[in-house]
């Protein structure tokens, strides 16, 4: 018998006589928190990420200022001119490792948890580009901010890869003390538009 058939057989015999019906209560919703965008900013900053708010007209200059003299890579569909940046066309990991920063958009922002979710559409690019460079500049529109995790889940397409980002890379592995800066970008700079 194949391992598959044997395991499925064991599962069925383990559950013989067990009713599969389980009452599924809906997960509760957090109460209304008022100004979602303000909450989002507060919660993102709580992770020691940097947040800059700007108008759509100022976006280009704000991003340029955040980058300063850092070399950068952008996804092909960013929809913003970033002077001097390399447009990703499938760069090797080693090449990405030599670039200081990446600028991407996001799919959704979650206010309750201060989370950005990328679904790696053309304005966000491949997963590798927002991972290897040490500075991640992530542009999110105020209108993209939702209240809580279930709202984000409902918006996301599970067929796409998604990356949920809550602050810069961090670890609590030494004495359970949180320190920022391990393998992912050590600096997360969120540019909130609108």
């Amino acid at each position: 018998m194949s391992a598959r058939d044997e395991i499925l057989g064991r599962v069925r015999s383990a559950l013989s006589g067990v009713s599969p019906a389980v009452d599924l209560p809906p997960a509760p919703r957090a109460p209304d928190r008022g100004d979602l965008v303000a909450l989002f900013v507060e919660r993102v900053e709580d992770y020691r990420a940097v947040v800059t708010r700007c108008s759509p007209d100022d976006l280009g200059s704000v991003v340029a200022e955040v980058l300063g003299s850092a070399s950068s890579v952008v996804p092909p569909g960013l929809g913003l001119d970033v002077a001097g940046s390399v447009v990703d066309d499938g760069l090797a990991a080693a090449d990405l490792d030599r670039i200081d920063a990446v600028v991407t958009r996001a799919r959704v922002g979650i206010a309750e948890t201060g989370t950005l979710v990328l679904d790696h559409a053309p304005d966000q690019g491949r997963r590798a580009i927002s991972l290897v460079p040490d500075l991640h500049v992530c542009i999110v529109d105020a209108a993209q901010v939702v209240a809580d995790v279930p709202d984000a889940i409902a918006l996301l397409d599970p067929a796409r890869p998604t990356t949920w980002i809550s602050g810069p890379s961090a670890t609590s592995d030494i004495e359970l003390d949180r320190v920022e800066g391990v393998h992912g970008p050590r600096t997360l700079h969120v540019v909130l538009v609108g």
Binding site: E112, G114, W164
Partner: peptide, 10 residues
Amino acid sequence: RMNPYTSTWS
């Protein structure tokens, strides 16, 4: 409130 990174892939 949320861990720094969650990855999903299909």
